Simulated scan of single mutants.
Amino acid sequence: MSIVVTTPTGRVGSRVVRVLLQAGVRPRVLVRDPARLDPATRGLVDVRTGDMTDTAFVREATAGARTVFWVDPTQPTGPDPNAASERTAAGLVDAARAGDVARVVLLSSIGAELRGGAGHIDALGRIEECLDATGADTLHLRCAYFFSNLLFSLDDLARGVLPTQFHPERPMAWVDPRDIGDVAAARLLAGEWKGRVVQAVHGPEDLSFLQVAEILTGVLGRPVRAEAVSDADVRAALGSAGLPPGAVEAVAGMAAGTRDFTPEQPRDVLTTTPTTLAAWAYAHLRPRVSEAMRAAAARGGDGAAGAAA
């Protein structure tokens, strides 16, 4: 069984690799820098070193694979992230169209089904369409909002604030990237599915940012309040950070385009995964927030008060 895994050092990809190894599969992994692979894993996988934006490398590295797990590696910081994502996927699309790849599992997102108006998520929708047109068997995992996105707000959480561009009171799906990896690995190993398949990965429950703030209050042992941030303020902050206009829209448009959106697939036994936000936050967020609070204390900032253990 030949399985290719892209971004094998990422939060989802690394979990996929681990599960495949435990299932007795030696996956082929595409990496820019093999040194980033876990040393214990490096000798158990087939490493192909190259740049995923290099179409020729992707064609060669995926040739003959039964299944490819594709994660778009594009960072939405360039002048046109959506076009960059589509160009990066072109090698895989060409391989699937030529029959060099039999099946593709794509890490997509809730909102990709909109096919427009959702910032960088639109690129995933376009990749879905391109893969669907190849004739290869394709499975699109439309994933919920990652728990790990909270790690981008460490300094704010150290101050007891959870900023959000979404409606604070509106529930939405949240998911642990590790659970996404488990679902992806299960699909990569399964031989029964054919044609075009869409499967959402919604996490254990829908939560509003108000509810998330309440959960984090318990996890961190100090008050956390949700605070709405306007689209204009987000765009202004991104622009001030030096992002070009295309990147600003790619980032800000994701929340702006999906905050009133109901996913195409309902929550059911196939789309619900087990890890709760509280469990993830105790393991991954609480230590990082504590570090941020200690750093603020060293700087004399107001994040020092009430530091969590």
Rank of each mutant, 00 (worst) to 15 (best):
W70V: 00
V71P: 02
V71F: 04
V71L: 12
D72E: 12
D72Q: 09
P73E: 08
P73Q: 04
P73W: 10
P73D: 09
P73L: 09
T74G: 00
T74E: 13
Q75D: 15
Q75C: 08
P76N: 05
T77A: 15
T77K: 11
G78Y: 11
G78F: 09
G78S: 14
P79M: 13
P79N: 14
P79Y: 10
P79W: 10
D80A: 11
D80Q: 03
N82K: 11
N82C: 13
A83V: 10
A83P: 08
A83C: 11
A83R: 14
A84D: 14
A84G: 06
A84N: 01
A84T: 14
S85W: 11
S85N: 05
S85R: 10
S85A: 15
E86C: 12
E86K: 07
E86L: 14
R87N: 12
R87M: 10
R87T: 12
R87F: 08
R87A: 15
T88P: 07
T88A: 14
T88N: 05
A89I: 07
A89H: 04
A89T: 06
A89M: 04
A90L: 09
A90Y: 03
A90W: 02
G91M: 09
G91D: 10
G91H: 10
L92M: 07
L92A: 01
L92Q: 00
L92T: 01
V93I: 10
V93W: 02
V93F: 08
V93H: 01
V93A: 06
V93S: 04
D94F: 07
D94C: 04
D94I: 02
A95K: 02
A95H: 06
A95R: 03
A95T: 09
A96G: 07
A96S: 09
A96M: 03
R97P: 05
R97K: 13
A98N: 12
A98W: 10
A98Q: 14
G99K: 05
G99Q: 11
G99S: 10
G99M: 07
D100R: 15
D100C: 03
D100E: 14
D100Q: 15
D100F: 04
V101Q: 01
V101N: 01
V101T: 05
V101W: 02
V101D: 01
V101E: 02
A102T: 15
A102K: 08
A102Y: 04
R103S: 10
R103T: 06
R103L: 12
V104Q: 00
V105G: 00
V105N: 05
V105E: 06
V105S: 00
V105H: 04
L106V: 07
L106M: 12
L106Y: 12
L107N: 13
L107S: 14
S108W: 02
S108C: 09
S108L: 09
S108G: 08
S109W: 01
S109I: 00
S109C: 04
I110M: 14
I110R: 06
G111W: 05
G111A: 07
G111S: 04
G111N: 01
G111L: 06
G111F: 00
A112C: 06
A112Q: 01
A112K: 01
E113C: 01
E113V: 02
E113D: 14
E113R: 02
